[in-house]
Design a protein around this nucleic acid. Sequence first.
DNA 1: CTGAAAGCGCTTACAG
DNA 2: CTGAAAGCGCTTACAG
Lengths: 318, 318
Amino acid sequence: MRTVSNVVNGYVHVSAGTRERVEQAVAELGYRPNLVARNLARGRTGLVALVVPQLEMPYFASLAQQMLDAAEAMGLHLVVEQTHGSRERELAALEGSFGQRIDGIVLSPTTLDRDDIEARRSTLPLVLLGDRDWPDSVTSVAIDRLAAACAAVEHLLDTGRRRVAIVGTNLNASNARWQGWHDTLTAARCPVSSDLQFETTGISGDDGESAARRIVELQERPDAVFCVTDWIALGLIRGLQRAGLDVPDDIAVVGHDDIPYGRASNPTLTTISPNRAEIATIALQAVSDAQEGPQRQTVGWSLVVRESSAGHGGVANP
Amino acid sequence: MRTVSNVVNGYVHVSAGTRERVEQAVAELGYRPNLVARNLARGRTGLVALVVPQLEMPYFASLAQQMLDAAEAMGLHLVVEQTHGSRERELAALEGSFGQRIDGIVLSPTTLDRDDIEARRSTLPLVLLGDRDWPDSVTSVAIDRLAAACAAVEHLLDTGRRRVAIVGTNLNASNARWQGWHDTLTAARCPVSSDLQFETTGISGDDGESAARRIVELQERPDAVFCVTDWIALGLIRGLQRAGLDVPDDIAVVGHDDIPYGRASNPTLTTISPNRAEIATIALQAVSDAQEGPQRQTVGWSLVVRESSAGHGGVANP
DNA sequence: CTGAAAGCGCTTACAG
DNA sequence: CTGAAAGCGCTTACAG
């Protein structure tokens, strides 16, 4: 028993002869270890839960793709769950309500706040992704959102724009994207008045399109727009084009997330591209060695200049 | 032991008093059953592998979303794997090389052929998705591809088009989309000549865009195009617009798959929409009760008429 | 280097 | 209706 186990698990101290006999038997019998039994004995499963709002949202599809690639490279498998933005499901995921069959959780919450995180009881390793600042008691991984937003707006100023609007949800000081927009424009003595701020109800294309309708009606229009997501940006562009405006000639547009559609849209979309491969690797590593203790991890990003901001292609990498 | 197990598993024959005492102890101790141990004892895991080429491809992201929703409704969990179109990985998935920890496999192959399927050794329940005809020895689920292609082309004829091109891979009689295109046009006495067939190397937007360049140069252009995927269609539209052509006024375009971006593109995209929710439910049911034996399952689809074919909106459902 | 044995935490005939 | 026990198929101290 012991010896077979040693051979199967690649343990070194087995005589060559014995190893060979075991391997031959394994081959003849077509033996494959029962991983459930192994998991029970070892107390680990090699399974990590990836919990996202919806896979159909391109950002999360891309993220999941990177996570799966990173997991494969690390010998892990991912059980994927969707919350559909439901608070109950996010709380359930937080507590690891899949039973003990997973080793850890990578969660991208949309409704949870700091209090929810701090009230957590489960000790299952947890990594938080996403757009907010989380308590120090938990491991999280994100880009430097403020710096990225500043770079996006600075790029618009660099192309000669002065009236830069912002479109998205949660447009206040708690939002790093809003803060970056505000600070950069203020430093450049450009307006940040309320008629340049277009609060939306969601982050989808429809929200962008309805923002476009509001913008088109303005007597003094912005000459550039920073959108908090690519989906908003693509909807906005569509709305502007419907109204007969040209992007970027009349209004330049910059998005955020670098979803695949932005590379194929017309015009192609200038955007902030988070390093998703890095997010994936770091998140899974953090879940795997949870004894390291909680830490706030920062990953890279880049500004990808495409047609929607009048760029002639090229990438600015900070 | 037995009684606790009965209570936890909701078995009926437990006296009310005993049940209450057990439940109280469960609550006090915060007991949660170890699912790995349960799996070992029961011989099932409640885990199904979903194997797709890439999650970043919108069709598969949407499919995965539906699969996850269906799995949740059935009390199953999905371990998602990507093949990236690699033949080795598809073969590995076919043999269930995740160990015995899954109850079945839903696989969407891109490179496997009938012989590969028939040479399969593993007896793990398997369901095949996708575009080809599979042997009767295996369970598969798909739409009636020929009927769907015919409906797409008929729709173009209905809007007054006569020169209907086809763009995609594998344009021959083994391809139901090509067959539907060919048969429908022939029956309507419309041309199916080779200058209306644009074979591409892949099914992505770039392939559509390069097809557009070829089409634009023609002296006698088609007045409509049937694309075998939405991604090709969106790239094609982009290429046509670049060349100064209008869609649908100059050329109508119909795609296939109903990816989310086709609802937000400019123009919005007419397409064949497979009933993905049905695909998901049927696939998981087939995996769950594999004793039913292999069967070829057919699911519904609809032609969604949008702007790219000059429709004024609306859905035609066969 | 290898055998015999206990243990991982459940489920489920088997008695009663 | 409920207890005592075997078994699911591994891993891993413990001897030797």
